[in-house]
């Protein structure tokens, strides 16, 4: 499987995924740290991919969604943006709603098997 397919799988198989530098516990970039913190504060489980540990994903992620920077946050298969958008949605309370909806949809899909 090539890198774009692997990225696509992460995006499609997880209701909420952040591609970041480092991990939520050990972030390696201030932008990644803030975005991961905002996601954590919503109380909805999310997946992370450490782009520093995966050179192929690091190289290919910018062209996957035509977005030049890290972190990138995908909810329900769609890019919501990077750090600044995530923080802005969080400040307005919309982020939590978005994540909860995505998680609920995922559960419904799982129930339907």
């Amino acid at each position: 499987m090539d890198a774009l397919e692997r990225i696509d799988q992460e995006v499609k198989n997880n209701p909420v995924v952040i591609f970041m530098k480092g991990t939520p516990q050990f972030p390696m970039c201030g932008f990644s740290m803030r975005a991961a913190k905002a996601l954590s504060e919503c109380g909805v489980p999310f997946t992370h991919v450490n782009v520093l540990q995966d050179p192929e994903i690091f190289e290919n992620l910018p062209r996957y969604a035509d977005w030049p920077t890290f972190p990138q946050i995908y909810v329900d298969g769609e890019l919501i943006g990077g750090c600044d958008i995530t923080l802005e949605l969080h400040a307005g309370g919309e982020l939590k709603t978005l994540l909860e909806k995505a998680a609920a949809r995922q559960e419904t899909a799982a129930d339907e098997g």
């Binding site: 390696m28 201030g30 740290m33 803030r34 690091f58």
Partner: peptide, 12 residues
Amino acid sequence: APDSPQCMSGSK
């Protein structure tokens, strides 16, 4: 506008 974060040395 919010202040930008300080570096955490994760830049390649």
